[in-house]
């Protein structure tokens, strides 16, 4: 019996680890945004197109709910969620604002040319300052801002799978 003891201990530990890893909703790395319920931080950045007006926090206080999406042309998951953003803008009539994170404007524009442009307005966050103020943990990340400039919801990571139907749209509906 005693020669099996080490094996039994190892299997028990493996079971424990497996339980911990697959537990629902346990993601020690997901950081819940503390920006929820707070006014969106003030910012002012240039637009992507050279002649376009810049983007400021005033654009978030138009009385209409706005989705703010942080993206980058070099970010693979951003491509994955692009379809969802297009659907939001085209089919659900949502106003989506895109902020290009640490990305040159020409590349961002090429990205939008290629995949379609769902954004009502865009801004270029060249040094990532705005993203830091917003507490963005990585691109893509999407915030829902109500008409008065208060952040009401944050979507962590790409909007893929049932993320659009199950999370983003209900949050948007709740504002209307």
């Amino acid at each position: 019996m005693q020669r099996f003891a080490p094996l039994i201990i190892v299997l028990a530990l493996a079971g424990l680890f497996f339980m911990m890893m697959t537990q629902e909703g346990r993601n020690p790395n997901e950081i819940k945004s503390v920006m929820i319920g707070k006014p969106a931080p003030a910012f002012s950045i240039p637009g992507l197109e050279a002649d376009a007006p810049g983007l400021t926090d005033a654009d978030l206080r138009t009385g209409e709910p706005v989705l703010v999406n942080f993206f980058a042309s070099w970010c693979v998951p951003c491509r994955a969620e692009h379809e969802s953003l297009m659907a939001l803008a085209r089919e659900h009539g949502a106003t989506v604002i895109g902020i290009a994170y640490k990305d040159t404007p020409d590349r961002s524009l090429a990205f939008l040319d290629e995949l379609g442009n769902p954004f009502a307005k865009t801004g270029a966050d060249l040094d990532g300052r705005v993203a830091i103020d917003w507490g963005v943990t990585g691109v893509p990340e999407t915030f829902l801002v109500d008409g008065s400039g208060t952040i009401v919801y944050r979507h962590w990571g790409p909007i893929v799978g049932d993320g659009l139907e199950a999370q983003v749209l209900p949050a948007l509906e709740a504002l209307k």
Partner: peptide, 29 residues
């Protein structure tokens, strides 16, 4: 940015107005 001190994520997230809280596990994580 990749590391939240363990235990700092609010357990009663509803109170923070976080819609994801509703889908989180029973133990609140």
């Amino acid at each position: 940015e990749n590391y939240a001190a363990p235990g700092t994520l609010p357990k009663n997230e509803e109170a923070c107005g976080h819609p994801e809280a509703l889908t989180a596990g029973q133990d609140g994580r």
